[in-house]
């Protein structure tokens, strides 16, 4: 469970706010998509949840505990995070990148290895082919999948993902989205996922929050957004996939 109460964030001592008065709640096992234009404060919001950034005001509760009263290092080890810039360690092999969190948690060696094997298989990078490679020897999409594997391996209850599937081709992407959704349901993960792709959000999310200029314009289940957009910007956002879908239908009919 993740809950943000009246979160504000300013980088210039209150002259301007990158995030202003954001409140949201994600129940256990739910997936919330954050969507919004570039610079609207999505990444900043995510970073505050594992204390890479500290909020200027407001309260954040994760699994019933106020995170500001927790040891940040422990908190971060308990939360999976897929970074927007991927942030793989260039001097670590794929295997060691994925094993980073379990090592910090002092898992047993054999357990780490079997965990890595399983998770890398799942993201389509079998350990025997990719385990010994360095990030520089991977494509952008492969790096992104290693980033997802690194966030998932320790089976965190809470997962924060910043554009995790951005650099993937449509087929791999669709496959990974489905696979991820399966795991998320299986492990009952609580997820906040940032995306720019409304289709992705509509297909994967239990809740969608649309952000602009640091504020949440509208938040609700995909159906609600589709049926009752409360804002011009939200309308524009959902019109895009809708128009595409109807144009595709026309194309199909004309065959």
């Amino acid at each position: 469970m993740i809950e943000l109460q009246n979160i504000e964030k300013s980088f210039d001592l209150g002259r301007s706010f990158v995030v202003s008065d954001v409140s949201l709640k994600v129940e256990r096992g739910q997936l919330l998509c954050l969507i919004g234009e570039s610079g609207s404060g999505k990444t900043t919001t995510l970073k505050m949840i594992n204390r890479i950034q500290e909020p200027s005001s407001g309260t954040i509760i994760v699994n019933g505990e106020n995170i500001l009263q927790q040891d940040p290092v422990k908190l971060r080890r308990s939360i999976g995070y897929v970074f927007q810039g991927i942030g793989l360690f260039p001097h670590y092999t794929v295997l060691n990148n994925v094993a980073a969190v379990p090592s910090l948690l002092r898992w047993e060696g054999s357990l780490i290895h079997s965990g890595c094997e399983e998770i890398l298989e799942m993201v389509g990078l079998p350990i025997k082919d990719y385990g010994d490679r360095y990030p520089s020897q991977l494509s952008g999409g492969q790096q992104q999948r290693v980033g997802v594997a690194r966030a998932l391996i320790a089976k965190p209850e809470v997962l924060l993902m910043d554009e995790p599937f951005g650099a993937l081709d449509p087929i791999t992407r669709a496959g990974l989205q489905e696979e991820f959704k399966r795991i998320q349901r299986l492990l009952n993960l609580t997820v906040i996922m940032v995306t720019h792709d409304m289709t992705e959000a509509l297909l994967m999310a239990d809740q969608i929050a649309v952000m602009r200029k640091g504020q949440i314009l509208q938040m609700g289940p995909p159906k609600e957004l589709l049926n009752r957009p409360e804002h011009d910007y939200v309308r524009k956002l959902i019109e895009l996939p809708r128009n595409r879908a109807s144009r595709l239908e026309e194309l199909m009919d004309s065959l």
Binding site: R76, G87, F89, R150
Partner: peptide, 11 residues
């Protein structure tokens, strides 16, 4: 971004 990731995973 590498430093942020290192901190972010809990180092």
């Amino acid at each position: 971004e590498v430093l942020e990731a290192a901190m972010g995973i809990g180092m």
